[in-house]
Amino acid sequence: MTRFGYTLMTEQSGPKQLVGYAQDAERRGFDFAVCSDHYSPWLVEQGHAPYAWTVLGAVAQATSELDLMTYVTCPTLRYHPAVVAQKAATLGVLSDGRFTLGLGTGESLNEHVVGAGWPGVATRQEMLAEAIDVIRALHTGELVDHSGEYFQVDSARIWDLPDEPVGIGVAIGGDRAIEAFAAKADHLVAVEPESAFIESWNATDGAPEIGTTARAVGQVPVCWAPTADEATELAHEQFRWFGGGWSVNADLPTPAGFAGASQFVRPEDVSGSIPCGPDLDAIAEAVLAFPEAGFTDVALVQVGDRHQQRFLDEAAGPLLERLRNA
């Protein structure tokens, strides 16, 4: 059975609001919540970027059944993998095993802030692969020394670990990433409902099989609002950056860059790719593209903070009922 999640989008809501939304998402029947891990919003209009790990720690205490996941953390530049290993283990303890560590190669928007430059994609994949090895080693609870191509770890040990090791999901966008990470990860993360991703993953030697031991976790933006016109206006204001695609989005360094790159994106361009308005059947159709492609989990992003509470109060329950009865 497909699991449906809610996105705690740190770029568009403040930390206190996000904790409250997580509580409401649990009450409304969502199975899990994913949380973005950003240093900057995509666009100035979004206006937020609280520290995801503090938010998740609070959410872990404010909820009791909602599974949690970073979607996604880059453990290579802004964070050293030894620090990510400690944070993930602590959150695993605080959540009583409800946390999954979602990892990816990152975006310049968030990682350039520490002044370490922005490597090419091949280097970023190599760095992520080594970082996963470091995190896995530290999650054994043993003393770890590591001298690798990109990372040094000196006599490190994680002292507080959950009863079961934290699962690791890795974001992929094509065969190259699947080849690099499928055998290293526990779960697949992707933002496109591509059945080929599932097939390639399951065909990779050493990869955990999606649908048995592994999950495939997708994400889809939607913009519910009382009218289609209002939803389209809001989606254009908040999410016009989305049209660039991840190959572009990964390399732009600032919200100003995203504003420039999206200046010619029209409202109808956004509403053509994101369901906008009060029609829950149209929203459900977009969400269900993921389970139809073989994904086991899909998280919804309600675009913008303006109608976030109304979405949870008025739309989430009936929408989840449609999704589960489809």
Rank of each mutant, 00 (worst) to 15 (best):
P15I: 06
Y21I: 01
F32K: 00
V34M: 11
S36W: 09
W42K: 00
Y51C: 06
A60N: 02
T63R: 02
Y79S: 02
P81I: 13
V84G: 00
G92V: 01
T100D: 10
L128C: 13
A131C: 04
D133P: 07
D133Q: 12
I135H: 04
A137P: 04
T140F: 03
H146M: 09
E149H: 14
Y150V: 08
F151Q: 06
S155C: 11
P162G: 14
P165I: 04
G167E: 15
V170T: 13
D175I: 03
R176C: 00
K184A: 14
E194S: 15
S195Y: 01
E199K: 14
A203I: 05
T212Y: 08
T212M: 10
T213Q: 14
V217E: 03
V220T: 15
V222P: 07
V222R: 02
C223K: 02
T227G: 12
A228T: 15
T232N: 04
H236K: 01
Q238A: 10
F239K: 03
F239N: 06
D251F: 07
F258Q: 02
F258R: 08
G260V: 05
S271F: 11
A282K: 10
A286E: 10
V287E: 07
V287C: 13
Q302Y: 02
G304Q: 00
H307D: 08
A316W: 00
G317S: 13
P318A: 11
L319G: 10
L320Q: 05
R322W: 10
L323G: 08
N325M: 05
